[in-house]
Amino acid sequence: MSGAQVIGRVEARGISRRRWAMVVLLVGAALIVAGAIVAAGRNGLAATDTMRSWTAGVELVVGLVLAAALGASTFNRDADAGWVGLQVATGTPRVTVALGRIAGRLTVLVAGFAMWIAVAAIASAVIGQGGDQDLVVHGCAMLGNMVLVLLAAALCSVALGPVASAIVAAFAFVSCLSLANLMAAADAEVIGTSWTGFITALYLLFPRAITSPMLSDMQARGVADVAGAQLEINGNVVLVPASSGAAIVWTLLWCLALAAAAALAFRRRALS
């Protein structure tokens, strides 16, 4: 087993036993079940929308908390307390240690989302909505977004404290979300044309929040609630389209770049 695998496994095991991580994962699952109970009291499309909006809301809000908290703890406190130093002092190259620590956190995030997606699919089937493939696809899209948040927080945690790292990462995600919305508004020609070039340049350069077909549809109908308010500019409802394959690939490339940047930045960090 490689050094990164050893560290990744140890980190994932340690984090998954921490009380805060268990609470966040269980709260997410409980809220999805609560959404299913509410949806069970409704009929037809209303029931489907309720189940989907609750689940999407949980994946956004609780997922953001989980991803930011995981990423923000990648280096700072453990580096100051001596835990990261103990890993480096075994002769494991620093880049390997950094990638292992990130991999361990990504494992917990993926496991958390897998659990929520499974709970949502089972709950949806129990209330007669079927397994709901669209909801599964949306869960995967949100996981992609949260990987971006985790890696942004991990990069920040090389130099910043955990709270600052989490806040910066959450802000970065909100910026990506805003950028996708602004690009949709520019495409719909509901904002000044003088801004279009600037917004397009930013959209092409920065990572893009991934929007699933399900969320795009629900946002357009104004039934996504917490997961995505209907976008209205100058009295015009703007349809935020589902992310293209190219947009998803671009965001995933940003994820790789953030992981590499975190590993490289960590090389020069003083350790206890």
Partner: peptide
Amino acid sequence: PQSWPFGYGL
């Protein structure tokens, strides 16, 4: 190392 240098949860 000194202090309490281990990853919690382990």
